[in-house]
Design a protein around this nucleic acid. Structure first.
Length: 317
RNA sequence: GCGUUUCUUUAUAUUCGC
């Protein structure tokens, strides 16, 4: 049983909801009874796939099987609504949870906040956070990271930095983590302060936090969006030297760095490098390269890339 | 009673309009 639960979780992580569902039926053919963990994992799998209705139906099945939904079950359902962009349904599910006598925990509140953020309801997210404070619910780093990102989306950079600085003072549960630093780095990029992106990155290092792919990619992206291809390329190399394999985001950011610097042939070079790697270009990579040519008026080359993309079986959007 | 562990939540890439 536990093995099936693990396998379903594995499919969930890889966004294979149908495979997860297959296992769910397969285990029952072996006369294994799905337990709460099974249902939770299955709900999670559908949530990640944006199938919030399925997620809800599975919870109903659970009730029919006389397995009471746990806090994790509700959290998974609320999260399923959130990742499908259904913030209203997320709030309703949260209310239903309370009505059914299952109290929300901090994770629940964080899931609601992120559902509001995914639904672009940044102001609502901030009011929800204020409500949490008034109720004496103490936030953790995840909470504050979401708040920072909502403030950035609203263009309230100074307030975002205030939250960041309060996290640095408080430490403990609220100590800035790698997500915090990456968010602040991105905030500086969005408001045009590239130098501070590097400063934040270095601060993260001096705090003893190890950068991951996402933080490297964020720095590459910051340089890229400001047309600083040399700096972007240098971070790309540092990433590789640190033992990471650049992913599709790393490559696409670098393509964009050259595109924005008016160097489509360099962008093409990186694109070819990506094809020679284990990482396949996706539609965003193709779009970045097409735009690199297009913005330099090289329409024939741009069309060539478009044709190559279609030959590769990717539909233009 | 205390601690440890498991599960659920947050950060990065392309174009265009307001």
């Amino acid at each position: 049983n536990d093995i099936y639960n693990m396998l379903i979780r594995l499919h969930s992580r890889h966004n294979r909801a149908d495979q997860a569902r297959g296992l769910f039926f397969e285990m029952q053919e072996w006369r294994l009874k799905p337990d709460a963990d099974t249902y939770n994992a299955l709900i999670n799998a559908h949530g990640r796939a944006g199938q919030w209705r399925w997620a809800m139906n599975i919870m109903d099945d659970m009730l029919r099987a006389a397995i009471p939904p746990s806090r994790s079950t509700y959290n998974n359902v609320i999260s399923a609504c959130g990742s499908s962009g259904r913030w209203k349904e997320a709030l309703e599910a949260c209310k239903r949870m309370t009505d059914n006598g299952v109290g929300p925990d901090l994770v629940t509140h964080n899931i609601v906040l992120s559902a509001l953020k995914k639904g672009s309801q940044y102001l609502k997210a901030l009011s929800y956070f204020e409500l949490m404070k008034r109720r004496g619910i103490s936030a953790d780093a995840v909470t504050l990271n979401i708040v920072i990102n909502c403030l950035v989306k609203l263009g309230q950079y100074a307030k975002a930095l205030d939250v960041f600085n309060s996290m640095r003072e408080k430490r403990g549960e609220c100590a800035p983590d790698i997500v915090t630093f990456t968010s602040v780095l991105h905030a500086y990029s969005v408001c045009g302060q590239v130098d501070n992106c590097k400063a934040i990155f270095d601060m993260m290092l001096s705090e003893g936090l190890k950068p991951n792919m996402i933080s490297y990619n964020a720095l590459i992206g910051a340089y890229a969006s400001h047309g600083m291809h040399a700096e972007a390329f240098s971070v790309f190399n540092t990433l590789k030297k640190s033992g990471f394999r650049p992913d599709v985001v790393s490559y696409t950011s670098l393509i964009n760095a050259y595109g924005r610097s008016g160097k489509p042939e360099k962008a093409q070079e990186i694109f070819d490098m990506m094809k020679g790697s284990s990482c396949k270009p996706n539609i965003v990579s193709y779009n970045a390269l097409i735009d690199a040519y297009g913005s330099e008026g090289k329409l024939a080359e741009a069309l060539n890339v478009l044709r190559e993309m279609e030959r590769g079986g990717i539909q233009p959007d």
